[in-house]
């Protein structure tokens, strides 16, 4: 089997006496959606921070396409091909949807030290950014300020930003949060199609969505992965039912 696109090897991180991440190994293969689930406080956010580079691990490493990216900073990891979306939509509120995506295209191209040419007259930049908005269905709202967009539209804009990075893998932090039933139903086929572009590491609370989408599921409890497998295996796992799904029901 080919090397995994994203490979977490033995990641550990403690805050004082609290082991937020405890020897987590996890891989993301080409063409798959790997979902990470776990109850509140299981350490999902810490793990996301370790992968994105916001937090440094005490031990272990992060590999992207066979390259050790553990020493890289967050911006360097983004440029190396890690496309992250945020749990709390955090865009540039004053900018239109289009300008937000243009910024991501500009960042991917790595040409931020340009002082003379106005970005709004940069047709190449605009058109490319618009194509990502079209893909997530936000093109009609391109000129609306991000702050004015609805919650669901902002979630879609988050995804458009990740698309604009043309990443080697996506890191989606609860993309369904607050979308409502119909929003989630729209997003599921979109993500299913997107995994052909690049595999997706999906942190998600919506269990129905996870079981519909994920090729593999890993369950994180108190910083450790207690089970990993396909939807049927996770559903049938007694330990998972006890600590996690049992609570949910």
């Amino acid at each position: 089997m080919a090397d995994p696109v994203l490979d977490l090897r033995g990641l550990s991180k403690s805050f004082g006496a609290l082991k937020a991440t405890d020897d987590v190994s996890l891989s993301l293969r080409a063409g798959e959606i790997h979902a990470l689930i776990g109850p509140n406080g299981a350490g999902k956010s810490t793990l996301m921070a370790l992968v994105s580079g916001k937090t440094r691990p005490d031990a272990g490493s992060v590999w992207l396409q066979g390259q050790d990216i553990t020493p890289l900073s967050t911006p360097q990891r983004a440029r190396a091909g890690l496309g992250r979306s945020f749990q709390v939509s955090s865009l540039i509120p004053d900018y239109s949807a289009l300008r937000n995506v243009m910024l991501a295209v500009q960042a991917r191209q790595g040409h931020s030290y340009r002082f003379l040419r106005p970005v709004m007259r940069d047709a190449g930049l605009r058109e490319e950014a618009r194509s990502y908005l079209e893909r997530v269905g936000l093109a009609p709202r391109a000129s609306v300020e991000a702050a004015v967009l609805s919650h669901g539209e902002r979630r879609l804009l988050e995804i458009a930003l990740a698309l604009a990075l043309r990443p080697k893998c996506f890191l989606f932090d609860e993309p369904m949060a607050g979308l409502g039933a119909s929003g989630t139903a729209d997003l599921i086929p979109f993500l299913r199609a997107l995994k052909a572009d690049a595999p997706i590491l999906l942190v998600e609370h919506d269990m129905d969505a996870v079981f519909q989408l994920a090729d593999r599921i890993s369950v994180l409890v108190t910083g450790r992965i207690i089970a990993s497998g396909n939807a049927a295996e996770i559903r049938g796992n007694a330990q998972v039912r006890a600590v996690y799904l049992g609570e949910d029901a």
Binding site: Y95, L103, Q106, A107, R108
Partner: peptide
């Protein structure tokens, strides 16, 4: 654009590679 993005949201700017 990059400078203003960093002012508004440094974490977001970093996550897109700035």
């Amino acid at each position: 654009a990059a400078l203003m993005a960093i002012r508004h949201n440094p974490d977001r700017a970093a996550a897109i590679g700035i």
